[in-house]
Design a protein around this nucleic acid. Sequence first.
DNA 1: AATTAGCACTCGATGTCTTGGAGTGCTAAG
DNA 2: CTTAGCACTCCAAGACATCGAGTGCTAATT
Lengths: 344, 344
Amino acid sequence: MELNERKKRILYAVVANHIQTAEPVGSRTVARAYRIGLSSATIRNEMADLEEMGYLEQPHTSAGRIPSQKGYRYYVDNLMGDGQLTEEEELSISRSLGLEKMREIEQIIANAVKVLSSVTNQTSLIMGPQFQKSTFQQMRILPLDDRRGLVVLITDSGFIKNKVIELDQSLSPAELHQVVTYLNQKLYGLTIDQVTTSLINELKRDLFRRLEILEQAFILLEESLREERQARVFLGGTTHILTQPEFKSVQKVHQMLSLFEQEALLFEILEQDLAKDDIVVRIGTENKYEDIQECTLITAAYKIDRRILGSVGVIGPTRMDYQWVIAVLRRLVDQLNQTLSSNR
Amino acid sequence: MELNERKKRILYAVVANHIQTAEPVGSRTVARAYRIGLSSATIRNEMADLEEMGYLEQPHTSAGRIPSQKGYRYYVDNLMGDGQLTEEEELSISRSLGLEKMREIEQIIANAVKVLSSVTNQTSLIMGPQFQKSTFQQMRILPLDDRRGLVVLITDSGFIKNKVIELDQSLSPAELHQVVTYLNQKLYGLTIDQVTTSLINELKRDLFRRLEILEQAFILLEESLREERQARVFLGGTTHILTQPEFKSVQKVHQMLSLFEQEALLFEILEQDLAKDDIVVRIGTENKYEDIQECTLITAAYKIDRRILGSVGVIGPTRMDYQWVIAVLRRLVDQLNQTLSSNR
DNA sequence: AATTAGCACTCGATGTCTTGGAGTGCTAAG
DNA sequence: CTTAGCACTCCAAGACATCGAGTGCTAATT
């Protein structure tokens, strides 16, 4: 499986050139442009070898070679170096993310995806922080008028959920306050996931004994928790994918865009590598979902104080400037982590 | 400008047929399919007249005719009847909108656009209620801990905005309460638009005399008001437009989708006919924005207790089943109005 | 033994030509 | 005024020729 130095250089040349031009790369091109010091004939032989070994493929007999999925994988793992951003790119990332102050977390996230897509010129996606994984901090009920109240629920990672509810008429303010205090006490520090229906029922029974009126208060709690089992996914630069030559058929575009409309699917896609603590590159069929098996997905997790909150990524054709996109993503995540953490 | 009966029937036939088939319509087709009782030759003559009058046009000499923009306009204004929905369609609208209970207004809106696009198979858009136009009801500040507080601002049409702020350390709870009470008193019943910076400054001066510490409290108020000058626009079924034969070139698709990514533009587009109290049909160049001058936009305003909140619409190629889409839209808006009003 | 020049061959892309058919406009007859 | 008939137009689709980039193989060279 190991390639000798010469094969490596040739493979590198083919991949690099193909990434740039989107065209099959011929032996002449490699010979001339990458000063390997060999004639095209020799390179032709090597390329034939590389094809046999599965790193390259030929669209048709008399065309040049293009990298296979395995070829890209080898390139990503062994050949490419670390990408370097231009000063301009650096700036546009830090400027647009660094200056955010005290904004809602969702806004920061939504902005991040815009920055990412506009810098990379690729479609980007980001998974919002998972409500379920954040921990309960406190809950309040604000009486609005005599019939209705506003429930406010706050979690540690900056989520604020609110919901207007009908208040049980027979519940006195003092009693209401008592219920709320009780709940805060019991729930503090639990993750939302841990606030299961059975826990709620238990609390309900417990309270019932002391206070006999609070159906509504519990319904609200359950409701606001049940909602959003799944985090939001933000998309940016959806149309960038249309500028790629590999998406010049309307049919493919359609397939791709339909996928983008299915938030639940995007969520699953982003969620799978959430635990990994580095950049994850999924090339072609390394993706589980058929619809993106002609694409590459590059993702990274973002964190707040070392705790992983969600995942952000770029999706595009397998022919992608891996080196550079990875550098951008890395930079963006750093900045994002910093911004989020300093906001607490 | 008036057309005789025969011309009307022929124009109707051409439009109706073209809407169905997306192909140019020939004289033979009209003669056979629409039992006008005339030969194709006669119809040919009439069609030539209609073309000269500007209602029809010919893609090229030896092709059939297609309706011109003027032709569609005449069809919409004078020829088509009221569309009828199937029971199934009726049901799917009322089922998916009717059952909503006590949900946030934004959720109802976001759902409505999904329903509309999936029933019509067209791209749909809906403008969320304008925060600016709703009236201030009350504002509260919930202390979270000793440094921070949660500001909650509630308006009549169901908006609830919240924001975490740093509290001025030197502000005692009693004083804070006093400020909030004062503000509520002064601002109640004003639309958000009316809460201008100058008004805030005035209040600030007024309060300053009595209470000398509240910079922060005002900053928050201004900030939460300054945000969202513009309502959100929700989109649904973006990809439906790709199934239309008039969008078979990737370039057009790209242009269209790029437009969809610009929320501010969509907002302007939807806002322009907001005051009109009926369905508005804008065909081709009747749209101000160049990018959609090959499209038709059909919009309608939705209301809560007679007050117009926002606007919902469908966008597609000028060749659109006007009659039916209008019927669907009408039905949906009725249902939406009802749902929204009953939620108060 | 490795490299390279040389050459025949392959195959898609591009351009030209032909053919067929749908539809028109005009004319002359009903 | 209507219609049958016919010549004419023009696009779409297929057939065919041409071109050139690139290959694989062979034989000569280092």
